[in-house]
Design a protein around this nucleic acid. Structure first.
Length: 290
DNA sequence: CCCGGCTCTTGGGCGC
DNA sequence: TGCGCCCAAGAGCCGG
């Protein structure tokens, strides 16, 4: 389940293995992957064929590859991995992976960039880049301007996040997962950050002090940085880097996926309960219900 | 504007 | 052995 650390691992892989290369041909094996590309598959093919990959950028869980295309500058291929998306750079003679949705032939054809996605929650589309208000020279795809800066971004503003928590009337986990407040946090790192900060997921945000809001986002920053250092969290083969390798952070998780096991801080039994139509994992002693 | 619920999607796992 | 159901999850969308 790629969240910020996993997407950043993929971005770094693309930075070293795909940036600077030209897409000389491509094949779309499942057009559903282009759901958000409004002009259809043929338009996508026309835009991408012959384009050179200029860089690999990320905000939160969104990746994009700015490209020089025939039609003009200021466009990028936006990539969202969803639950099960993978961007793989591999030699062309390696057989197609199961669930291969799109193939980009690089340069002379010896290598390919492959988008593999079992559940088709992820997707690819072309978008125009527009200027960012708060940073001169920085651009972002037009469709994701509503996505907030993430905790690892040098311009991340805790003041703005705290202001949001003051005026919203909802629970802290909804805010953690709201990508317009702070991007990149998904279900796994939300649960892990809440455990580290000692807060229950249903804590009303407008009741939280400045210190508590600071603590929860510091915890999110900390756990995501540690996960990035371990190559991300992999439970199975669904999340891998561009070389198809898994990360090792799953063994360091304290609550996610540990229902029925003991809390590493106080030895109580970890609980799993439903919230927002998904699972939340917490320690009932370290994170008392408000 | 804000809130919260619905929807899309595949395949592994489990009960009968 | 096989069928059917549940679950995993991000984020756009829409009704209240």
């Amino acid at each position: 389940m790629p969240e910020l650390p996993e997407v950043e691992v993929v971005r770094r892989g693309l930075q070293s293995s795909a940036v600077g290369r030209r897409i000389t041909d491509l094949e779309i094996l499942d057009a559903r992957t282009l759901r958000r590309h409004g002009q259809g598959p043929q338009d996508f093919i026309e835009q991408v064929t012959g384009a050179c990959i200029d860089s690999a950028q990320r905000r939160g869980k969104y990746l994009w590859l700015p490209m020089k295309t025939g039609s003009g500058e200021g466009t990028a291929m936006v990539v969202h991995l969803g639950m099960s998306g993978q961007m793989l750079v591999s030699r062309s003679d390696i057989p197609d992976q199961r669930h291969l949705r799109c193939r980009f032939v690089l340069d002379d054809g010896a290598d390919e960039l492959r988008f593999v996605d079992q559940r088709i929650f992820g997707g690819l589309y072309m978008d125009r880049l527009i200027a960012v208000d708060d940073a001169p020279g920085e651009t972002i795809p037009s469709t994701i301007v509503h996505i907030g800066r993430d905790p690892l971004d040098r311009l991340f503003s805790l003041d703005e996040v705290f202001a949001q928590t003051q005026r919203r009337r909802t629970e802290i986990k909804r805010i953690l997962l709201d990508q317009s407040v702070a991007a990149g946090i998904g279900n796994i790192y939300a649960d892990e950050a809440l455990w580290r900060a000692g807060l229950h997921f249903a804590t009303p945000v407008n009741s939280m002090s400045r210190d508590e809001v600071t603590a929860i986002y510091a915890a999110a920053h900390e756990v995501m940085t540690e996960a990035l250092d371990q190559g991300g969290t992999s439970f199975d083969s669904l999340y891998v880097n561009v070389n198809g390798e898994s990360g090792y952070f799953a063994r360091s998780l304290n609550v996610y996926g540990r229902a029925g096991e003991n809390c590493r801080r106080c030895n109580s039994t970890i609980v799993r309960s439903a919230f927002m139509n998904r699972s939340s994992h917490y320690c009932p002693v370290c994170q008392p219900i408000p």
